[in-house]
Amino acid sequence: MMEYLFLGCGIALLLLMALCLVRVVGGPTILDRILGGNVIGTKTTVLLLIIGVLYDNVSMFVDIAIAYALLNFIATLGAAKYFLRNRNLPGE
């Protein structure tokens, strides 16, 4: 019973990530794309945990999820810092 719930949640998360991809591909400014990437990254962290529950091996997937959340945060911060430094919008 719970397995089906987790499976459904995983599929729903995948669909939501596909929807976010619309914003990443067609975002008007480059910051929209960064934002879309960040949103997808948060969902991926949760999705990794759900996959861990489905495979009955949470203790392994938790480590991967922590590392992924960390790298996602660093990527967003780095991109933001790049624009704070350069002060113009490339390619527009």
Binding site: S59, M60, D63, I64, A67, L70, L71, I74
Partner: peptide, 14 residues
């Protein structure tokens, strides 16, 4: 657990 030298090194460098 998953991981090891390379992954841990990446997190430390990060």
């Amino acid at each position: 657990s998953p991981g090891g030298g390379f992954q841990g090194g990446v997190v430390l460098g990060a």
